[in-house]
Design a binder for these strands. Structure first.
Lengths: 216, 216
DNA sequence: CTAGAATCGGAACGATGACTCCGCTTAGAC
DNA sequence: GTCTAAGCGGAGTCATCGTTCCGATTCTAG
């Protein structure tokens, strides 16, 4: 009950609007730099206001986070939709992936951001799904990957980008491996290799082996 | 100053040894089920002892965690070393990967475990490095991946495995994409695709594009 | 200019979780 | 059986963090 968008929207007082902007700006930076985990008091201090002021504008820390990421996700959705009309579906798909990867390099809160449920998330997932299936029909992406699997991969990659030991080159390489893996046709080779040469030492349980060979 | 391995190791009292085992057992289960984040009091309760008893045996929560994962990491190192003598380096490498992947499915603390610094971690990384370079020389794994990049990929996969929305099938698929990506020769195709078809909508910044094309 | 309401700031609260302290219990040596 | 020290448990301490409260401040309508 502290959102500015009450029904009879009385215009905010000038200083209040100013503070709201300061809080949003500080939150954007803090979340991007340290993820959702940053203490709210730190955001308030960064904005030059007290914690009480933050809560006057946003009912909860999570609401503040959502306000911060909303524009970002909307951007992603718009981008995905725009690309989905491209002539080359493969390029569209991987271009979008590259864009997300690029963003994950700089914004530490991206994995948290795409994990927030709601209509925006639904729109994002659907837009990604369109990109994916078009790329698959064009033969640019392996057919046995679903949208939800792709999202999990996204999140994992974004999480990997935040590893303390990850340099920019490391991030590029991780990204390259994953995208190349998405392009490969099937996973037959791996299973064949596992069968061809019996494994020394503690062997992989055969149940696991079978699961790799059996599916698709 | 509560470790049992003091210099003049007086044998532990019978009930003390029993409690130590109970704590270790409960900790193994709890860490595997919920990662390093489980409250220590919960582990104590699970073991049927008070928190004070836990601290009598392990000076700190982290020390308890290390005691729990030590055997696991030693196992991984031994496995990696055993496989490194195999006739088919590719099969050895991917077999080890499959084993780690298998473990990450069940043990939620694996990413934390391989992140703990110390001689065991060094040994693990070195053993993995040997597996990797042999597989690369045999042409089974792309040559432009380093050990540290591989470790980051490991952690990413483990993180993906813990995603709330990840079913067993999703985990298999994520694993398949990453291993296939490791096998692919280069990332030339991706860059070519990006160049071939100009991108609709908000384009990837050209600096990013160039970085993909230029390296290797 | 002034009154009243909106807004502010930061002290305080409550929950959580790692870790400590200490009076009581009990193993095990004699 | 007794005595002593090792061991136990759990209440208590300390720190962190989200959130609330309220007296002080500041905007703005009139």
């Amino acid at each position: 009950m502290a959102d500015q968008s009450a029904d009879a929207t009385r215009p905010l007082r000038a200083d209040a609007r100013r503070n709201r902007e300061k809080v949003l700006h500080a939150a954007r930076d803090a979340f991007a730099a340290a993820g959702f985990g940053v203490p709210l008091d730190e955001i308030a201090a960064q904005a030059g206001v007290g914690p009480g002021t933050v809560y006057r504008h946003f009912p909860t820390k999570e609401a503040l986070f959502e306000a911060v990421i909303q524009a970002r996700i909307e951007d992603l959705v718009a981008d995905a939709r725009a690309r989905s009309g491209a002539a080359d579906p493969g390029a569209a798909f991987f271009g979008f992936l590259a864009r997300v990867g690029q963003e994950a390099r700089v914004k530490r809160d991206l994995p948290d951001a795409i994990a927030v449920p709601g209509p925006l998330q639904d729109a994002l997932y659907e837009a990604i799904g369109v990109l994916l299936s078009r790329a698959q029909h064009a033969g640019a992406v392996r057919g046995d990957v679903t949208t939800s699997e792709l999202i999990v991969l996204f999140k994992a990659a974004a999480a990997a980008f935040q590893d303390a030991s990850a340099t920019p080159a490391t991030r590029d390489q991780v990204f390259a491996v994953i995208t190349d893996g998405l392009r490969s046709r099937s996973r037959g080779l791996f299973a064949q290799q596992l069968i061809a040469a019996p494994i020394i030492g503690q062997p992989v349980p055969s149940a696991l082996l079978l699961s790799y060979i059996s599916r698709q």
